[in-house]
Design a binder for these strands. Structure first.
Length: 877
RNA sequence: GGGCGGUUAGCUCAGCGGGAGAGCACUACCUUGACAUGGUAGGGGCCAUAGGUUCGAUCCCUAUACCGCCCACCA
């Protein structure tokens, strides 16, 4: 006997162990089958499962389990990402706690520490994915820094280098002075902050006049190499070609004319600092201006600035310079201003600096062209479709990818230099030495951007560059499931690397799912403290509840809101499922091995078979269309509103008093429908369904539910008649309940029902289903009659009028009001139909089927109105 | 500045050319032999605004307003 409620904590671990032992998640054990493959977006090895992962993994798991049940050979490829910066920071922080540092240890020792950390506490997130029930092939787990994947990275680098697509360049990058590394444009977050706009007077040589420039960053003036004005700006036209003496340094710089200067902004004259501003860099190139770098790698001012400023931080230098300018009488004014400042996206605290360095770049243009073509041709499709444009927008304006990082943790760039600085790019040091003719070489210190290895994930995890069976079998993958914030970082780059190196797209479909917000609709962040921890939710409500809630919320819009109250209702659904299974168990509903659902004889059983078949079709179609909310919703609706509310309730009187044959068929049908429900819900709620699958069978099942066959049922031939009858019965019961509630008939009071004005078919329906109707509507009798006694409450059902004689209990005024309200509604409807049908334009232009439908509805409403009018009339007698 | 979403019941969201839906919340009643993590019944919406297309618009088109996101710029 099942417990009264489902206890996830007791069950989840045990079920997970059964799955693991069964080997069901492993790919390749269905040799002839069609394949279905997904690569997981590898979470950072430093990561903790957050609600976004929970959603992402749930959706993938739904697909994996669904396709596995459909008999496909499923590979869901798991793994983690080495997360260069994040991991290095964690280990550095731990070293600092032990009074040690990366630099003191040296590269080799430091990397040993990182690997040690990875072995001990890295990858906690994988455990957490298990708790969610993720059915990935854990035997194939990969790490972006493991041997095979590193080999792929090296190979790709060398090939791209040979193809002339990877090169070194000296230009401005976004520099993180704290980590002292370049960061990607994509990792920059411009944050609006309050600052000051200083107007600084630059003295024009030999004139006693000044030209005023406005700046939010006065400290960079030490690197100014020009002042630019717009060529058409009348105010400054005569000054072009003159020279100014840069304050505080005395350095002479020209006034130049350039379109970049905007007369509307600031003073119309702008200082040009090619070494510390991306736009100024371009201006400098156009005018061959010298480029002065004033910063050290750590962001302090270097020795190329006047002595008083050397070694100061950017902030301190700014203060001092403003004070010195003021003292010199060169500060015209300062005004508060709100402006965007580039910050490091992760911490949002470190101010990034445009900084001149030499870095490795990948010319992605030719790769991007292939990726674009693949999406244009529909080889890869985005779902929802509108993300295609986001992809194109970025890809069509793509810029060279700065792939080098000044970190230690990562894939070290496979480039060596000889004493003359000559470059040797090779897959191994031995090869490089050979290329160099045996000269002593030193290796490039930099590592690759983390996303470089992630870009190879769909094929590197399958064994590339080796020609493995897996690569052959599972590439291209079927679906990529991810959030929109990494379309550029990751999806685009996988598309480029996949099309370039494999000659085929890495995935046929890209499903972009929602972003998860908290219950108030705010972005989750640690600083806000509104992070919803999926593990807490799992602890409290169970993994199934969380998963189902996430699936139900996974609509087509951009965001979803998730929090405890919603997961609680997911838990309630799990309880409902549990208890309806408990009902089946208590009534001896046991799966029959050779049960044929299309052969049932009882109307109610035919009806539930048809409804089940419809639900199966809906859920299947919705998952296929990647509409998870529709799929979960259809299953929910079927379980709650059809199976539990009606079918189970209708079986109660049958189990209590039906004849043996009817009972036997109903038990078998109930068990069958329950089994279909367990299968339908398995992809969404794997633990509870697996548990019930075993617990509801008197003898062991042939297989675990995880590998059971996905349902596919046809409705019985006479399902339409059965549905018509059951809908009539349901409407009748609902009508009685409604009247009882509105007339305040006590729940315990039993009343009688008289069906009047009914045709023979309706009378037969009533007779056939009298038991059910009497039980569910709490009646002592239900019969046909010719006349309606006084003191009856009435309602209209089709062509018939249902009377509930209430005797002295009835409140005539109330009953009249109730009927008149109904009548008014119907009359309003008729008025609307008449207006429409009386409109010549409508009648001549509307399609025939619409006209027919409207006429039919008009006729139905008329019948209803007539019956209601009669009923009100009788009340007056 | 460019682009993309959104605006439907108190809240969260479906729907999307022919009678406004769900969940949660709310109200009333009910401990009925699966389930109070429940049941039954109910209240609640000029579907943001203004035009247009159409026989007909919550739905399509165009503007507007507000909210949100992305990209670029930020003297």
């Amino acid at each position: 006997m099942l417990d009264k409620t489902f206890n996830p904590q007791d069950v989840e671990k045990r079920i997970a162990a059964q799955w693991a032992a069964s080997g069901a998640f492993q790919c390749g054990n269905r040799p002839g089958a069609e394949t279905f493959s997904i690569v997981i977006p590898p979470p950072n090895v430093t990561g903790r499962l957050h609600i976004g992962h929970a959603l992402n993994n749930t959706l993938q798991d739904i697909l994996a389990r669904f396709e596995r049940m459909r008999g496909k050979d499923v590979l869901w490829q798991p793994g983690t990402d080495h997360a260069g910066i994040a991991t290095q920071l964690i280990v550095e922080r731990q070293l600092a706690e032990r009074q040690m540092s990366r630099l003191a240890l040296g590269r080799e020792k430091f990397l040993e520490e990182v690997w040690k950390w990875k072995g001990e506490s890295g990858g906690a997130i994988v455990e957490q994915q298990h708790r969610l029930g993720a059915s990935a092939d854990w035997s194939r787990e990969r790490f972006t820094m493991d041997e095979g994947l590193s080999r792929a990275v090296t190979k790709v680098f060398v090939e791209l280098y040979k193809q002339g697509l990877i090169y070194k360049d000296k230009r401005l990058v976004n520099w993180d002075p704290r980590l002292q590394t370049a960061v990607s444009d994509l990792e920059v977050e411009n944050i609006e902050i309050k600052g000051t706009l200083w107007h600084v007077k630059y003295p024009i040589e030999d004139s006693g006049q000044f030209i005023t420039v406005a700046t939010t960053r006065p400290e960079t003036m030490l690197g100014d190499t020009a002042v630019a004005v717009h060529p058409d700006d009348e105010r400054y036209k005569t000054l072009v070609g003159r020279t100014v003496a840069l304050p505080l340094t005395g350095r002479l710089i020209p006034i130049i004319a350039d379109d970049y200067s905007d007369p509307q902004k600031g003073t119309g004259a702008v200082k040009i600092t090619p070494g510390h501003d991306f736009n100024d860099f371009e201006v400098g190139k156009r005018h061959t201006l010298p480029l002065i770098s004033i910063l050290n790698k750590d962001g302090t001012l270097n020795n190329d600035v006047p002595a008083p400023y050397r070694g100061l931080s950017r902030e301190a230098a700014r203060k001092k310079i403003v004070a010195d300018l003021e003292a010199a009488g060169l500060l015209e004014k300062s005004e508060p201003i709100s402006h965007a400042v580039p910050h490091d996206e992760k911490t949002k605290t470190v101010v990034l600096e445009p900084f001149l360095t030499e870095q490795w770049y990948l010319n992605v243009q030719p790769l991007a062209d292939k990726a674009i073509a693949a999406v244009e041709s529909g080889e890869t499709k985005f779902v929802p479709e509108n993300w295609t444009n986001v992809f194109f927008g970025w890809m069509r304006n793509i810029r060279p990818w700065c792939i080098s990082r000044q970190l230690w943790w990562g894939h070290q760039i496979p480039v060596w230099y000889d004493a003359d600085g000559k470059v040797y790019c090779a897959e191994t040091e031995a090869e490089a030495v050979q290329q160099a003719g045996g000269k002593a070489l030193s290796r490039d210190e930099d590592v690759l951007d983390t996303w470089f290895s992630s870009a190879l994930w769909p094929f590197s995890t399958l064994g590339w560059p080796d020609k493995t069976v897996e690569l052959e079998r599972y590439y291209p993958t079927s679906v990529l499931v991810t959030a929109f914030d990494i379309i550029f970082f990751w999806v685009a780059r996988m598309m480029m690397m996949g099309t370039h190196f494999m000659g085929q797209v890495p995935f046929k479909t890209v499903l972009i799912h929602n972003r998860v917000l908290d219950e108030q609709g705010a972005k989750m962040s640690k600083t806000k403290g509104n992070v919803v921890d999926p593990l807490t939710l799992i602890d409290e409500f169970g993994a199934d509840a969380l998963r189902f809630t996430l699936a139900l919320a996974a609509g087509q819009n951009r965001d979803m809101r998730v929090g405890p109250t919603r997961v609680e209702s997911g838990r309630n659904f799990a309880t409902k499922l549990w208890n309806t299974s408990r009902f089946c168990e208590m009534n001896g509903c046991v799966t029959l091995p050779n049960f044929d659902p299309s052969g049932v004889a009882q109307t109610v059983n035919q009806w539930i078979v048809a409804e089940t078949a419809a639900a199966i079709a809906q859920v299947t179609a919705a998952i296929e269309a990647l509409r998870f909310n529709d799929a979960a919703g259809a299953a929910y609706h079927f379980v709650y509103d059809i199976f539990c509310d009606w079918y189970v309730e209708i079986t109660k009187p049958i189990f209590q008093s039906g004849n043996a044959a009817v009972q036997a068929e109903t038990r078998a049908t109930t068990a069958w429908a329950r089994d279909q429900i367990l299968k339908l819900l398995h992809p969404f709620m794997p633990f509870i369904t697996e548990e019930l699958w075993a617990a509801t069978a008197p003898t062991p099942r042939d297989s675990l539910l995880v590998v059971a066959e996905w349902p596919d049922a046809a409705a019985p031939d006479d399902a339409a008649a059965a549905s018509a009858e059951m809908n009539w019965v349901i409407d009748l019961i609902k009508g009685i309940r409604s009247v009882r509630a509105e007339m305040n008939v006590p729940a315990g009071a039993k009343i009688t029902l008289l069906l009047t004005g009914a045709d023979a078919a309706a009378k037969e329906r009533l007779a056939r289903n009298a038991d059910v109707i009497m039980t569910l509507a709490r009646l002592t009798s239900a019969s046909a009659a010719d006349a309606i006694p006084k003191g009856s409450a009435q309602f209209v059902l089709g062509e018939a009028v249902v009377a509930l004689p209430l005797g002295d209990v009835i409140d005539f005024a109330k009953e009249r009001a109730r009927l008149e309200k109904d009548l008014k509604k119907v009359q309003d409807e008729i008025t609307r139909f008449d207006a429409k049908l009386g409109n010549a334009q409508f009648v001549s232009k509307a399609p025939e089927e619409v006209l027919a439908e409207q006429r039919e509805k008009r006729a139905e409403a008329a019948v209803l109105a007539a019956r209601l009018t009669d009923a009100i009339g009788r009340l007056a007698e």
